[in-house]
Amino acid sequence: MAYEAQYYPGATSVAENRRKHMSGKVEKLREVSDDDLTLVLGHRAPGSDYPSTHPPLAEMGEPECSVREMVEATPGAKAGDRVRYVQFVDSMYNAPSTPYFRTYAAAINFRGVDPGTLSGRQVVEARERDMEEVAKFQLETEMSCPALASLRGATVHGHSLRLPEDGIMFDMLDRCRLENGVVIMHKDQVGRAIDKKVDFGKPMSEEEAAKRTTIYRVDNVAFRDDAEVIEWVHTIFEKRTAYGFKPE
């Protein structure tokens, strides 16, 4: 019998969603075109070539190295792309993903990425076209809700604040707005105005967000409701403590 990776314990919807995010088997909910993605990332003009920091690997003549022979370079590394970043922010009010699970999703399912996990934001650094692949995956699937998650290169503090009346996570730089029932982004991820309003579609309803979230909350699925998760957390805590204990 072939081994199947097991990602996360638990029987609740939150545990199931966490497994989905980690395994990358998530539902695609919306389409974001390449040009729209380039616009909101703000690293280069849409349609322009990827600027490079070194010639393509094929032209460089790499040294003889067994590791280089075993591991194929990512498309971005092969082409010599610059390293660029994408940063997501997820509201604490039942956002679909969280920094930890965005990081798991990136690190498990993509190569050549450097995810950074912080309390309120999650950044992925990678060669530009590899980074865009991760960003597109996370934006188009159920890992993001246009109202409760957003692309923010700077100024992320809205994640921990109450939602405004329209349900769009507070943003000091006002990058996303609700217009005619859909969420549009009219600035790039650092707050520079862009030429076009990028449409990210309808926000999730409160019920749908509660169903798709990876956040345990007392007012939705409480952490303590999931006996298997608690058991594993206790096990890991106990073992970490026991192995870290060094009497002298």
């Binding site: 290169g153 700077a154 100024t155 730089l173 790039d188 650092v190 707050g191 520079r192 105005a193």
Partner: peptide, 9 residues
């Protein structure tokens, strides 16, 4: 914008 690459916008 108070800080970041878009400072002043």
């Amino acid at each position: 914008v108070p800080y970041g690459p878009a400072t002043g916008h």
